[in-house]
Every structure is written in structure tokens, then in C-alpha cells.
């Protein structure tokens, strides 16, 4: 059954979209991530223009992160103060990201920037996750206890001024790195159409020493708000958000996430992290392949949309 997407301006099989939503939702539920870094490339592969894909996926992630955030809210596993401060940086980051997105689109270099940022981010983060996952599995096999949180060891981050106490997370850190992390997440989210959960969670754990119990819920609140604002900004400036596409994706996504979450709970956490690392690395290498191997067609054409 074909469905006509009004903004993407092409017909796509509705079951293909639902299936993609289910599959990505399953993975996102399993690993506790938004899944944007998987969904955006899939949509581009189906034939949707990269700009429309990035803008629409932000809507999809907003929906799936709301579902996650609601579950963590009921368990009181969200640090609201930390989320709000991350958000302050996040909104500035999203706004500048959307502005850069618009400028790059005008210059015709948006695709290459999306491709390169995916490549750099996914390959480096994926490689780190795989290495860390392998080390953890090795340690588990040797019978040593799994190290979840390295004790003490204050870094330069803890020497920064403007310190704030976050009660729920039981941390006392400077506002500067918190806002900076928020800014980075908002910025790359707007450019790459990813919620960045797979980046935010390790950053909060390693840089700010936020306890694992509140980290995912807090990250989901941040993802929800940055992605919802990215949706609004993309819709207002570039008119690229396809509501029909977003709706079909999010219906599949929120359903798949429920089954994914149940599957994830049955797996050991270090194995889960290794699998996620392999997934991230694989997607990154796929982007590397596209950029390095000679394209089938050297030419591309793109319609000029007159901005009103």
C-alpha cells in the first residue's frame, strides 16, 4: 500500500515505513537510545531527500523519547534540575545547528557535512564502545567485578567555577561543562537528525559522574525537548518536516521500542554495550564507504526552493 508523503513529495510503501519504525524502535528500546542515527540513513536509502529525512526524524525521536521519559518519570529516575540546565545549552545548540543546516543547504554542501559528521562521530564512538565492551567482557570472563563507575579521580572539569549542586544525581559540578554538553547535543542533533542518546549517556557518566540510575531518564528528557524544538525550528525555517512520514514512523517506533526494551532486559549489560558499539561502528563504516568509493553517478540535481 503506497502512501503519498506531502512534504517529501513522493509515494512510499506504508508497510516498509512501519517496518523500519518497528525495527529501529526495537533497537532503540533494547539499548535505550533514540535510534535517529539508524533511521536517518534508512530514510535516505528509501529515497527521501537527506534534508527532509533529518528534519522528520527529529519528530520521530521526540515521540519515542517521550514514551521512555514517561516510564522513567513514574520511577522518579529523572534529575529535573540537571535536565533543565543541559536544556539551556541545548536550545542554543539546536538554534545554531538549524542555522548552520540552512546555510549549508544553500551552499549545496549539506549532504557531505551530514555524511562526514556521521562518519567521524559513529566510527570514533563505535570503536570506543566496542573496545570498552570487549574489555568489560574479558574482565567478566576472568571473574573480576565489572567496573561501572570509576571512583574519585577528579578531572579538570571539576576545577571549573560556577559550581551547582544537583540533588537527584548527588553531584556537585560547574555549570559550564553541563551547558557545553547540552550545546553539543542540541547542535549535532539539529545537523544530523539524531537525538544523541548514545553520546549523551557516556558523556554524563564519564565527564559529570552522573549515576547510571538517573542518566537514561535524564537523557531522554533532554532528547525529547531538543528534538521537539528541532522539529518546530526545522518546520518554521526550512518547511521540511513531513508530518505523515513522522506519524507512520513514530507509530512503528513506539511499538517496537516496547518489545526491544523487554529483549534488552534479558541481556547482560556488557554484551548489550558491545552490540551497540558494533552497530554504531557498522553504520559509521557504511558512511565511510559512500564517501571513499567512487559514486555511480557523479552528478546530482536538486530543486531550488524559493524561501518565502
Amino acid at each position: 500500500m503506497e502512501i503519498y508523503l506531502p512534504i517529501a513529495d513522493l509515494p512510499v510503501n506504508v508497510f516498509l515505513l512501519l517496518g523500519m519504525g518497528l525495527a529501529v524502535g526495537f533497537i532503540s528500546g533494547m539499548f535505550g537510545i533514540g535510534g535517529g542515527f539508524l533511521m536517518t540513513p534508512l530514510l535516505i536509502f528509501v529515497g527521501i531527500a537527506p534534508a527532509v529525512a533529518v528534519a522528520t526524524v527529529s519528530t520521530h525521536i521526540a515521540a519515542s523519547s517521550f514514551t521512555g521519559a514517561a516510564a522513567y518519570w513514574r520511577r522518579r529516575a529523572i534529575d529535573v534540575a540537571l535536565a533543565l540546565m543541559l536544556l539551556a545549552g541545548g536550545i542554543v545548540g539546536t538554534t545554531s545547528g538549524v542555522l548552520l543546516f540552512t546555510a549549508l543547504r544553500r551552499l549545496g554542501q549539506l549532504d557531505i557535512v551530514i555524511g562526514l559528521s556521521y562518519l567521524l562521530l559513529l566510527v570514533s564512538v563505535g570503536a570506543m564502545m566496542v573496545a570498552e565492551g570487549l574489555r568489560a567482557m574479558l574482565r567478566a570472563r576472568q571473574g573480576k567485578p565489572v567496573e561501572l563507575r570509576r571512583p574519585g579521580s577528579h578531572t579538570w572539569i571539576h576545577g571549573l567555577p560556577l559550581k551547582v549542586r544537583f540533588k537527584q544525581s548527588k553531584i556537585y559540578v560547574s555549570a559550564i561543562p553541563v551547558c557545553a554538553i547540552g550545546f553539543i547535543m542540541g547542535f549535532i542533533g539539529a545537523i544530523m537528525g539524531i537525538g544523541g542518546g548514545f553520546l549523551l549517556v557516556p558523556m554524563l557518566i564519564y565527564f559529570l559522574r552522573v549515576p547510571t540510575s538517573v542518566v537514561i531518564g535524564t537523557s531522554m528528557v533532554l532528547t525529547l525537548i531538543t528534538m521537539a524544538s528541532a522539529t518546530i525550528l526545522h518546520a518554521a525555517t526550512n518547511h521540511l518536516v513531513d508530518a505523515v512520514l513522522a506519524l507512520v514512523l513514530m507509530v512503528g517506533g513506539v511499538t517496537g521500542a516496547q518489545f526491544g526494551a523487554r529483549a534488552g532486559q534479558k541481556m547482560r549489560s556488557e554484551r548489550l554495550r558491545l552490540l551497540l558499539g558494533i552497530l554504531v561502528l557498522g553504520v559509521g563504516l557504511r558512511f565511510a564507504f559512500d564517501l571513499i568509493v567512487a559514486p555511480n553517478d557523479l552528478f546530482t540535481i536538486r530543486t531550488i526552493v524559493e524561501s518565502p
Binding site: 519528530t59 521526540a62 515521540a63 525529547l224 526545522h234 518554521a236 518547511h239 508530518a243
Partner: peptide, 17 residues
């Protein structure tokens, strides 16, 4: 349109939860 789409996302997420 953007606000409505974002609201739709929140409603879908809420409904699923």
C-alpha cells in the same frame, strides 16, 4: 505546523506509554 507536529509526537509518545 511545527508546533502541531511536535504536539503530535508528544501525544503519540504519551499514548504509547
Amino acid at each position: 505546523y511545527g508546533v502541531a507536529t511536535a504536539m503530535m509526537a508528544v501525544m503519540t509518545g504519551w499514548f504509547a506509554s
